[in-house]
């Protein structure tokens, strides 16, 4: 049952969005977020939304997958909307009991919902079209300059990719331990939350012990394959920015400039 969990949802494909350099895509996502937060009114939001729609179309990701990604944050969306609706001062529209809904409140709530939804969709588009390894690689090179101030960028990237590598292994192991404990009469399905949480202890303890043992063995295996940190390391895959990367970057910069100008005129 646990095997069905997938992390870092990645839909393999061969679209332009998939083939872009991961670094480009990370920068694009950042530009997109900045533009989204600078947008003020329908026109500027419309511009950002148009770019998102084109990007989704090009990526070939099913819009339904993007909408599904919104489910876990539905509560946050509603919560922010209600708060904005009730607590924005301005020209009152409706008034009941101690609450007043203002015209400005409706506006802010509406744009807030729009902003969160587009934010989630835009960032999901990045993880949907970029494999976890490419993403780690991209981050490692983008954050490269931080090495100068002694941020262990290579080590962090290595930790991240090893974590990704061991997720399925550890899930499989959890499954095995659960079956073993069930066979000895452990009960994970009944009781209140406290009892269920306590029932997890006999799973977590062996899981952690085995994870530590694995870490130990992996470290020796890595040393045996001449791992000695990031120094002098080469790569099988070299990230390369091509003309298309620069073109898309330019397009996104234009979008950001457009949004800034439009926001300036309050549009």
């Amino acid at each position: 049952m646990l095997k069905d969990i997938t992390l870092g949802q990645f839909f393999p494909g061969n679209s332009l969005a998939h083939r872009l350099d991961p670094r480009t895509k990370i920068v694009l996502t950042l530009l997109y977020i900045v533009a989204l937060f600078c947008a003020k009114w329908f026109v500027s939001y419309g511009l950002v939304a148009a770019v998102l729609l084109i990007a989704v179309k090009i990526s070939g990701v099913a819009p339904r997958a993007l909408v599904k990604g919104l489910k876990p944050i539905l509560f946050i969306i509603c919560f922010t909307a209600v708060l904005n609706l009730l607590y924005t001062p301005g020209e009152p529209l409706v008034s009941f009991w101690i609450f007043t809904i203002t015209r400005e409140g409706v506006q802010t709530a509406f744009f807030m919902i729009l902003r969160i939804v587009m934010l989630i969709m835009g960032t999901f588009l990045l993880t949907y079209t970029t494999s976890p390894i490419a993403l780690t690689d991209g981050l490692e090179t983008l954050l490269g300059p931080l090495k100068k101030i002694r941020v262990p960028v290579h080590e962090l990237a290595m930790i991240m990719s090893i974590a990704l590598r061991f997720i399925p292994t550890l899930i499989e192991e959890t499954d095995k331990i659960m079956s073993a404990q069930k066979a000895r009469g452990a009960d994970f399905e009944t009781g209140n939350i406290l009892q269920r949480a306590r029932a997890l202890v006999p799973i977590l303890v062996p899981l952690f012990i085995s994870a530590f043992r694995r870490a130990d063995e992996l470290a020796v295996a890595m040393e045996c394959r001449c791992y000695h940190g990031g120094q002098g390391r080469t790569k099988l895959r070299v990230l390369r920015c091509e003309a298309r990367d620069y073109l898309v970057l330019l397009a996104y910069c234009l979008m950001l400039a457009g949004v800034l100008v439009l926001a300036r005129f309050g549009l």
């Binding site: 990704l164 694995r214 295996a221």
Partner: peptide, 11 residues
């Protein structure tokens, strides 16, 4: 080594 899972680094 003995355990194949604990010596494969990449996914």
């Amino acid at each position: 080594f003995q355990n194949p899972d604990n010596q494969i680094v990449a996914n």
